[in-house]
Computed example of a mutant assay.
Amino acid sequence: MTVKLSDIADAAGVSVMTVSNVMNGKRARVSETTIARVQEIADRLGYVPNIQARSLKASRSHIVAAFVPVREESSLLMSPHTVAVIGGVEQHLRHRGYHVLLRGIEHADEIAQTIRGWSLDGAILVEFTDAEIDRIGIDGVPLVALDSYSANPRTIGVRTDDHRGGWVAGARLAEAAHRHVLFAGPPYEGMGVVGQRFEGFRSACVAAGIDAGSIEVEQVLTSFEDGRELGLRLRRDHPAVTAVFATADVLAIGIMAGLVESGASVPGDVSIIGFDDFEMSAYTSPGLTTVAQDMPSKVAETARIILDEIEGREGPRVPVSFGIELVERGTVAPPRAD
C-alpha cells in the first residue's frame, strides 16, 4: 500500500502541510522535535517520495554533486579524506531528503556544464586546487569548496587551520631536538591547503632555531605507494634527515612502511608526524603521531552550509575554519646520538 503524506500527518498529529514541509526540506519554521517525529514515522511506515513530481513542483532536483578531480586515472575514492568527506556529507543530506551525485572532473571547466546538465541544486568541491576553483564561473548555484583558500566569491570555503597544523608539527619535531627535517606532500603551488601546512611547518622550525637550509622538501602524491617509495629511498636521498612531516596519514604510513622495508626503524632512525588522525593511524606499529583535524564538524558544517544556501537560509559567505590537535602516539623520539 502506498503511504501518503496524510498517513504520516495522522500518525504524527500534525498537518499535511507540516509533513510536506519536512519532506521537501522546508524546515525553517518546523521544530527539531517535530522534524524528528515526522521523519521517524515516515521511515517506519516506509514512505517513498515521488522525487520527480517533487522536483517539478519545487523547481529543484534535490541532487547535490560531490565533485572530485581526476588525477592520472587514479580512483576517485583512493584518498581516505575523500571517502570520509563524501560518506559524511551523503549521510547528512540523505536525512534531509537530498541525493548525492559523485562525479569525477578532468577539467574545472566541466563543473558548470555538469551543474546545468543535471539541474543540480548545489555542489561540493573536494580536493581541487585553488587555481581550479578560481576558474569556476557559474552563478546562482551554491558551491562549497573543501580545504580551499580560493578567493572565488562564488564559493564558500570550509577548511582546517592548516597553518596551525603545520606549525604544531614543526614545533613538536623541534622540541624533540631534530635539526634536519623533511616536509613530504603534494606540490603546493596553487594548492593553498598544502602551502599553508608547509608555511606553518617551516615557520615553526625556523622559530625553534632550525636552519632554513636544513628543511628539505619532497613533493609526492598523497598515497600509500608514493609514501612507501619515498621511505625506501629516504636515507639514501636525504641522509641527514632525522624526522618527516607528511601532509596526510596515508602518506606518512607509506613512508613508515618503506623505511622499515629498507632496514630503518621508526622512530629510532626517523621520526614521523602525519596529518588527519584517521582510524588507520592508531593501528600502525608504532601508532602514528599525527595532527588531528575535526572531520565530523567539518563535514557537518559543509552539509549545513549547502542546505542553508539551497533552502534560502543564507548566512555570511565567509570561510569557516576548524581547529587542530596533536595526537601523540609512538612515532616521535629524539634523534640518535652520533
Rank of each mutant, 00 (worst) to 15 (best):
V89W: 05
G25V: 10
R94H: 15
S119T: 07
E106T: 09
G88L: 01
R60A: 04
A65P: 00
W118A: 10
V70I: 11
L102M: 05
P80N: 08
A84H: 13
R37N: 13
E90V: 01
Q91G: 14
A112T: 04
G87M: 01
H92N: 15
S31Q: 00
R116H: 05
L56K: 09
R27A: 04
S59W: 09
E32A: 06
E106Q: 09
T129P: 01
E73L: 10
M78I: 14
Q91M: 13
V83W: 09
S59Q: 12
A42E: 03
N21I: 02
V100G: 02
K57S: 12
E127Q: 11
V83H: 13
E127K: 06
V22F: 05
T34Q: 03
E110F: 07
V48K: 08
R103C: 11
W118C: 09
R54W: 10
G104T: 00
L101R: 07
V83I: 15
I124T: 06
A36N: 10
S119C: 08
R27N: 09
I41E: 04
S61K: 05
I63V: 11
E40W: 04
F67Y: 09
A123F: 01
G88C: 04
P49C: 13
K57I: 10
V70F: 08
V22S: 03
H81W: 14
E73M: 11
I115K: 06
T33Q: 06
M78A: 13
A123H: 01
I111G: 00
V85K: 05
T82K: 11
K26Y: 10
V38W: 03
L56C: 09
S31G: 03
A28K: 14
V30G: 02
D43Y: 07
E110H: 10
A28E: 14
S74Y: 13
L56M: 13
R29K: 12
R60V: 01
R60E: 00
H99K: 15
P80V: 06
S59V: 09
W118F: 12
R37Y: 06
G88W: 02
H81A: 14
Q52P: 03
E127A: 08
A65G: 05
S75T: 12
R44S: 10
R103D: 10
G46M: 04
S59M: 12
A108G: 07
R116C: 05
N24R: 09
R96G: 11
E110V: 08
L120N: 00
V85I: 15
A123P: 04
G97Q: 10
S59L: 11
E72A: 10
G88Y: 02
R71F: 02
R37S: 10
N21Q: 08
S75L: 13
R27E: 12
S75D: 14
R60F: 02
R44E: 12
M78Y: 12
G87V: 06
A42F: 00
A36E: 13
T34N: 00
S55K: 12
I51F: 14
S59N: 12
I35P: 02
R44G: 08
P49E: 12
H99F: 15
V68W: 04
A123Q: 03
Q52L: 11
G88R: 03
S61T: 08
P49H: 13
R27C: 07
R96E: 15
A66M: 09
I35L: 03
V126C: 00
V30C: 01
N21V: 03
A123K: 01
I115D: 07
R94Q: 15
E73K: 11
A66W: 03
R116A: 08
A123M: 02
V85P: 05
G88Q: 04
V48T: 08
E73H: 13
I86L: 05
A65S: 06
